[in-house]
Design a binder for these strands. Structure first.
Lengths: 253, 253
DNA sequence: AAATATTTGTCCGTATGTATT
DNA sequence: TAATACATACGGACAAATATT
C-alpha cells in the first residue's frame, strides 16, 4: 500500500498528460494521508517516476497550486498544503450540521433558488404523491470554512412545507427549517451513491476545475412514524469529502 | 431537471473539449434514465446545443461508442446502447453475490494475488491487531456478465484465515471462502465511500479509459459476536455501478 | 418510383494547445 | 527559449445510407 506510486499516463485520451499527473499526485496525497507541510519529491524525481518531462510535472504542480493542494517555494521544494478529506456521516440520525462540526468551521447553508412546481414521476413516487402533485424544490449550497462542500436539491410536499425556503434562508440549515415546519425528528431511509464528472453549474458553485468529480448521494428522509419528509440529492466535491456510513448497532453495540 | 442540458466547455483546462462533451452526454443519458434504443439528437443539434463544432461532437460520440454507451448508424442516427447502472447494495447483511443477482449474470470473483505480510498501522488498527502482525492480503476482481465491476483488496488475520486465498480461488466468492474458514455470518460495520480518477492498474483491470472514475468503498466486516473478520477496500467502475445503502429498519419496519 | 431532406462518415486545410528535446 | 511532432478544435465540402414526400 505504500509502494512508490502507481504510474498512469496515456496520450490521446482527451485528458492532457499534465492533468493526469496532477490527478495522480493529488490521489497519492490523499491516499497516503500526507499531513500539511510534507515535502513532495523534487520535480526531476517526479518526472522520472511518472516517465514524463519535467515541464509536464511543472504544469501539473502549477494546477495543484491553483487548487490550493500544494505550495512551491523557490529553492526549497513543494509542500502539501491541504491533505485530509472532510468526513460526512450518512448514518441514520446524523445531520450535515452536526456531522462536520469539530472538523472544520460550522457549515453554512445558502439558498440559491426556491420553486413551487409539479413533481415529476420519480420524485412523486419517492414522496408518495401522485405525479404532478405540487412540491417545493430548494437549491442550496453548503460551505465549511468558506470552502463549498456540497450542492443539494431538496424536494418536499408543497402544502406542508410551503415555508421551507424562507425558513432555510433564515436559519441556514435544513434540519432547523424542517423543525420550523413541525418535523422534530427524522431518519435517513435508503441512500444511493454514485460518482461522475461535475457539470458546468456544479463546477461554478463548488469552485471546481473541469474534470473534477462529484459524489452524488440521493436519499429519502422519513419521520419515525413513516411519513416521508423530503427527497435530497446532494453533490459533494469528491476531492474534499468522503462519505461515512456507520452501522447503527454492531455486535456488542 | 429535464431542461435541455447543462453546458460545460472551458479550454486550456487539460481536459479536451470532446471529452467534456462526452462526459456531459453520458451524464445526461444516465440522469434521464434513457432506455436502450433511444435516439440521441443529431450531431448538428448537439453541436449547436453545446456551442461547439460538429467534429468535436463526433469525437465525443466516438469515445462513447468505444465505451459501449451508444451505437451510431449512418443515415439513421445515434442510439443509446447501455443506460442504467447496476445497483450494488451495501446494506448490513447483503453480499455482492446476492446483491447483483437478478440484474445481471451472477458475478464471478477472480483471484489476482495472495500474500502473507505484516499489517501496516492502519490495517492492524482496523483488525484489532498489533502493528506488524501477520495478515493475508487478497487482490481480486469481480465481473458481472463478463464486464468487470469491482477491484477489491481484502485484509484478514493470517492465522485464522490462512487458506482464504485458496478457498476464494476455488469458490469464486469471499462469502463462501469465509464460510470455509468457519465464518457463517458477518455484518458490515462502518463503510467509507469516496471517489477519484482511476489509476493505471484499475484502468487495466476494470477495462476503463483514462479519466474514468472509481467509487472507493472501504469497509469493515465483523461477526455477530463482534470479532473482526476482514477489512475490504473495493473500487467500483463508477460508470457501471451505483451503491445503495438501505436503512435496516425505518419507522414501521 | 423518384426526388428531396436528414443524418452519419470522410477528406481537405488551418490555427492553437500539448509534450518532448 | 526555441524547434519539432502530435493532438485538439474549427470551418467547409461532399459522399453514403436512410427517411420522407
Amino acid at each position: 500500500m505504500t509502494q512508490p506510486t502507481p504510474v498512469p499516463v496515456l496520450p490521446g485520451s482527451g485528458v492532457a498528460l499534465w492533468r493526469q499527473i496532477a490527478d495522480a499526485i493529488r490521489s497519492d496525497i490523499v491516499a497516503r494521508d500526507l499531513p500539511k507541510g510534507t515535502a513532495l519529491p523534487p520535480e526531476q524525481a517526479l518526472a522520472l517516476h511518472y516517465g514524463v518531462n519535467r515541464h509536464t510535472v511543472r504544469a501539473a504542480i502549477r494546477a495543484l497550486r491553483e487548487e490550493g493542494i500544494v505550495r512551491a517555494e523557490q529553492g526549497r521544494g513543494t509542500f502539501v498544503e491541504a491533505g485530509k478529506r472532510l468526513s460526512y456521516h450518512l448514518s441514520q440520525r446524523t445531520r450535515l450540521s452536526e456531522s462536520l462540526s469539530g472538523q472544520a468551521g460550522a457549515p453554512s447553508g445558502q439558498l440559491l433558488e426556491e420553486a413551487i412546481e409539479a413533481a415529476d414521476a420519480r420524485v412523486a413516487a419517492a414522496l408518495g404523491l401522485v405525479a404532478g402533485a405540487e412540491i417545493v424544490r430548494l437549491e442550496t449550497v453548503s460551505r465549511a470554512d468558506g470552502v463549498p462542500v456540497s450542492r443539494s436539491t431538496h424536494f418536499a410536499e408543497a402544502h406542508r412545507f410551503h415555508s421551507l425556503g424562507a425558513d432555510f434562508a433564515r436559519l441556514g440549515s435544513i434540519t432547523q427549517a424542517l423543525a420550523a415546519a413541525g418535523v422534530h425528528d427524522y431518519l435517513r431511509g435508503s441512500t444511493t451513491v454514485s460518482a461522475r464528472q461535475a457539470d458546468a453549474e456544479e463546477m461554478q458553485r463548488l469552485e471546481l476545475v473541469p474534470g473534477s468529480i462529484v459524489l452524488v448521494s440521493e436519499g429519502l428522509d422519513v419521520e419515525p412514524d413513516g411519513r416521508v419528509v423530503q427527497v435530497v440529492r446532494s453533490r459533494f466535491a469528491a476531492a474534499r469529502v468522503e462519505l461515512v456510513i456507520a452501522a447503527p448497532k454492531v455486535g456488542r453495540g
